[in-house]
């Protein structure tokens, strides 16, 4: 199967973009929830632009657009920015960051006020409260929706084929141009996405089950205590 070599590229695009995209999402969500008008406006504008335009256009703009600026061409970043690989990752990252920020924001807003007050009354610093109470609770709340977002992102990587990247869809297009067997090739390409996403969604489900133990049926285990003590 000549499409298989495209899988690593698809996975790389999706996972690198979502790994960095999470930080964009978190930063944008925190900015949107902050009392600071400037920060909030910047984040709102970012989300507005990214959500309001097609990913394909964003990919084109980054790939073709950045070379137009001299200061970018001459910056130390240019060796990276001229690579279609990194352009695709940047576009996917901005994109998932914007959508993800709304999921993270929902998660942050869902954290019960009383649990935060309890943490404050213990004398926890703001950083500690985020680290130990707010983020763990927000992540648990956001996880199902965020898993969905990663799946969407994985499918969106197919657009990177348009800027010459040979991931699954790119290889498929190449094969079709050589063989003219459109249906067969795209059926196989589609099955590959299906398989990857099946594994991905199972992974999210397992993670969710693990993290949501506190809402599940009672299951005393000393392992939990050991983890708490660690």
């Amino acid at each position: 199967m000549r499409l298989l070599p495209g899988i690593p590229m698809t996975l790389q695009l999706a996972f690198i973009a979502s790994a960095f995209g999470v930080f964009f999402a978190l930063a944008a969500a925190l900015m949107q929830l902050s009392g600071n008008v400037v920060l909030r406006s910047i984040a709102d504008f970012y989300v507005f632009c990214i959500r309001g335009t097609p990913l394909l256009i964003q990919i084109f703009l980054i790939y073709y657009g950045m070379g137009q600026f001299d200061f970018i061409r001459h910056s130390f970043m240019w060796p990276i920015l001229r690579e279609p690989y990194w352009c695709a990752i940047f576009a996917l990252m901005f994109n998932t960051g914007a959508y993800g920020s709304q999921i993270v924001r929902g998660g942050l807003l869902s954290v019960p006020r009383g649990q935060v007050e309890a943490a404050r009354s213990c004398g926890m610093s703001q950083v500690l409260i985020y680290r130990r109470i707010i983020l763990p609770l927000a992540i648990r709340q956001a996880l199902p929706a965020y898993g969905n977002e990663v799946i969407l992102l994985l499918k969106a990587t197919s657009l990177a084929s348009i800027i010459t990247l040979m991931e699954i869809t790119g290889l498929a297009a190449k094969m079709i141009s050589e063989t003219y067997r459109v249906v067969e090739v795209f059926l196989v390409a589609g099955s590959l996405y299906l398989l990857i996403n099946f594994i991905l969604s199972r992974g999210v489900a397992v993670l969710e089950k693990r993290l949501m133990r506190h809402t599940a049926a009672e299951r005393p285990s000393s392992r939990v205590a050991a983890r708490g003590a660690a």
Partner: peptide, 20 residues
């Protein structure tokens, strides 16, 4: 009550002594 819902009872009690 406002116990931290993602932590066990024991973890709730140990949280502040350990981290604060």
């Amino acid at each position: 009550f406002n116990l931290w819902s993602h932590k066990t009872v024991l973890e709730n009690v140990m949280e502040a002594p350990v981290y604060v």
